[in-house]
Structure formats: structure tokens, C-alpha cells
């Protein structure tokens, strides 16, 4: 593409290219520094993006929460059934599951930092 131009012109455009590239990289670094890193469990950052992604957000948070409770209930039932601790297994694990579900939902909403304190 550039080959049909006179050599001097080509060198000029090469220098320009290098300058442009350096500028692009600098800009990229600035943008990288400014954009928040993707939060845990986040799809595309869902802030103010209209209906569809708010719906997705709602589904995500509720699924996180419900997953914790379901798992807690299931483990509690297993413990009751096989170890005969009824009803304490269900009570304890359901509450643990509830706490885990809340933790999941909060983590997913970005209210607490993921894993690293």
C-alpha cells in the first residue's frame, strides 16, 4: 500500500506511525488505569445499561442467592438422612446455606471484594 509512494514520504509516514503507536499505547495505559477491573461474577459491567442487562443482573443475583440455600438444604437433608441428626442437620446447614447465598450475592454485586479480603 505504502510502496508506491516516494521513499522520503514513506519514511515520514513510518515516523508518524511510530509516534501514533506510542500515543496509542499511552492512551491505552491511561484507559487501563482508569477502568475498574472486572468484578468477580460480573458479566459486562451492568451499570445503567437499560432493561436487558438489569434483568440479567436480577437473574444473576437471585440465582447466586438461591443456589446457596438449595445447597444448604440439600446437605442438611443428606446429613439428617444418613447420620440421623434430624432435625439439626437441616437447621444448621440451611442457615449456613443462607449465609453462603448472601455472601455469594454480595460478592456478585461487587459489595465485597472477591476472596482477597
Amino acid at each position: 500500500m505504502a510502496d508506491d509512494r516516494p521513499p522520503s514520504d514513506r519514511r515520514g509516514s513510518a515516523a508518524e506511525d511510530a509516534a501514533l503507536r506510542a500515543r496509542l499505547r499511552r492512551l491505552g495505559e491511561q484507559i487501563g488505569a482508569l477502568t475498574p477491573r472486572p468484578k468477580a461474577d460480573d458479566g459486562p459491567s451492568a451499570q445503567g445499561r437499560g432493561d436487558p442487562s438489569n434483568l440479567a443482573r436480577a437473574l444473576r443475583l437471585s440465582s447466586e442467592f438461591i443456589a446457596g440455600i438449595l445447597l444448604g438444604g440439600f446437605i442438611g437433608w443428606l446429613v439428617d438422612y444418613f447420620l440421623g441428626w434430624s432435625p439439626w442437620g437441616l437447621i444448621v446447614f440451611l442457615m449456613l446455606g443462607f449465609a453462603a447465598g448472601t455472601l455469594n450475592a454480595m460478592r456478585s454485586a461487587g459489595l465485597i471484594r472477591p476472596q482477597d479480603k
Binding site: A56, L59, R60, S63, E64, I66, A67, G68, L70, L71, G72, I75, F93, L96, G97, A99, A100, G101, L103, N104, R107
Partner: peptide, 22 residues
């Protein structure tokens, strides 16, 4: 620790339910 373990174990549930339910 118990809550964290539960949270970890519930991951595949929410991971799969989300795609399936949507």
C-alpha cells in the same frame, strides 16, 4: 470457613442454573 466452603460448593449450581434458566 464453613460459609466459605458452602459458597464454593454452590458455585456450580448458580453457574449452571443461570445459563439453563435464561
Amino acid at each position: 470457613v464453613a460459609i466459605e466452603v458452602m459458597s464454593f460448593l454452590s458455585r456450580p449450581i448458580s453457574h449452571s442454573v443461570r445459563l439453563f434458566a435464561n
